[in-house]
Design a protein around this nucleic acid. Structure first.
Lengths: 162, 162
DNA sequence: CCTTGATCTAAAGTCAAGTTGAGGTTATAG
DNA sequence: CTATAACCTCAACTTGACTTTAGATCAAGG
């Protein structure tokens, strides 16, 4: 047999295999409060099935450019006690659509304006809409983690000093 | 006077002001081979005007989710010796369009499938197109730097073991 | 000439997101 | 019952992209 384990609980290895996420990353996510697990008598992690979905969600969100901190925030809207229902996930999904739309719009602007800026003859990449408007976001934290983060310029406008 | 300086050369402070990029970051970019500068008699950096464009390009590229290493690669296609012409930049821009298109398509797939996956009743986020196809890329390097990187699954397909 | 602000270098620090390693325990197939 | 694969913890290391600090030097107005 492959699973002599409580009802529908998964070992860390199984979660790793099914999600494609390393054991070490799963432990790390747990330490960061993104996922959780019960323990076997011997102290090994036992994940409930819905952890697969949580992990999938985490990876997807990362691909969209969000930090683990932001993701933790979103996941916090899911119930800890009971298995999230379809409705719980749907709520989360709906809440995120605008975010995704925003990111997409940003990239499209980027593409179109990169082309036209360079093609148009002005050549003033640094002066045009492409470079400046959202740039404040890049100065927010350290590093490029906030790139594409969707932070609204207004929120940072007074911060651009440095 | 504000500039008692060689023809059209800029100090690091001026470049910092005009690009919105910190002095320290400019030095860092130089150390990484992304930009370069001549020196004054006293050893201070003197940037040529086209550095502004290079820096702008760097920040834009970062917003699209590319690492400095990738960006260095792209910038390497610009001439070091002479000031890049409009044609040089246009070539670069054209080369990047597919990249941007790819990123946009990825995000759109993400958005559409996140909605339909969760809305459809299957609820199997982990099993569906949304999560799996590009996921190989996430296992490529360490960390999420390769997210959205556009690495084609084929290049990694044999790597997904871990 | 002198002062003050801008730069310089080199080294160390930071932060996110993990990975790696050592040393020890658990679970299960045979 | 035992070997062996899978787990465990905790601390240290890694990588990318910078920032900070310290102590010294340069540039330009007065």
């Amino acid at each position: 047999m492959i699973r002599l384990m409580p009802p529908e609980l998964l070992s860390i290895g199984q979660v790793a295999d099914r999600t494609g996420v390393a054991h070490s990353a799963l432990r790390f996510y747990e330490s960061e409060g993104l996922i959780s697990a019960s323990r076997s008598d011997g102290g090994q992690r036992r994940y409930s099935r819905n952890t697969l979905r949580r992990v999938a969600f985490i990876r997807v969100a990362q691909r969209v450019g969000l930090s683990l901190e932001e993701i933790r925030g979103a996941l916090a809207s899911l119930p800890e006690s009971r298995t999230p229902t379809k409705a719980d996930w749907a709520r989360l999904s709906v809440a995120w659509r605008p975010r995704l739309d925003e990111q997409i719009a940003l990239l499209q602007r980027l593409r179109d304006e990169l082309t036209s800026c360079i093609g148009c003859g002005c050549l003033s990449l640094a002066a045009c809409k492409l470079y400046n408007p959202g740039d404040a976001a890049a100065n927010l934290g350290s590093g490029p983690r906030y790139l594409l983060s969707g932070v609204r310029p207004a929120e940072v406008a007074n911060n651009v000093t440095h």
